[in-house]
Amino acid sequence: MSILTLPPAAAGSLIARLNPCTRVVAAFAFALAAAAGGGLAAPVAGLALALLLAGLARLAPGRVLRRLLALEGFMAMLLLVLPFTVSGTPLFTVAGLTASAEGVRQALSIALKANAVAVAALALLGTMDMVTLGRALARLGLPDRFVTLFLFTVRYIDVLHEQYGRLRLAMRARAFRPSAGLHTWRSIGWLVGMLLVGSLERSERIHAAMRLRGFTGRFPRLDGQPAGALDWGFGAAHAAWLGAMVLLGLP
């Protein structure tokens, strides 16, 4: 099972019927608008829009919930520390440390914004085939080489992940158990070294085969559909909501 094939947006759902370019632009616009606002009202509006988008993509609730909790450990710690480091009106005291209302507000605001963007990105982009995403990036004017690199990387991630699993299995068969220590860290170093050697040789063979078939270093651009009425309608509604969100967040 590939790590790149996420369940797509339900066929026939509004998100699935949108032009891929519309989805990419909408996702990045969402992230920028969320970054612009402070306070609590704007992030709440953002999260509401993100959940609406998730609904429009008919995402499974479990998937959305998992993404909500996916904040990396160090960010979670940072947010936990924040109430105690921001000075302001004391709210409560834990083990001699005083949490301020301002600090709690700020931590809450950041957590809401981070989660809103994560869910919106999942609904708009995570439900898209990565090759489609690459083509959309090309149509949006990113350099050919960047898009080619993106598409090649998408292709190799599966190959590498599979190979990584095979090597780890081989290590396990030889009674390797990861623990904290030089031996483990070096063994993993050699594992990735071997992964690189094997994959590079393979990539050279693939490249030779592609050149033989006339590949010149860039993929032909496949022109997709132009933006339709649905895209313009969705784009206008999306932009209006984001605009309102930015206004709400103004100090």
Binding site: F152, R155, S203, H207
Partner: peptide, 10 residues
Amino acid sequence: MPQVAVLSAV
């Protein structure tokens, strides 16, 4: 290109 993409995937 293939070499860079392999490293990116790693």
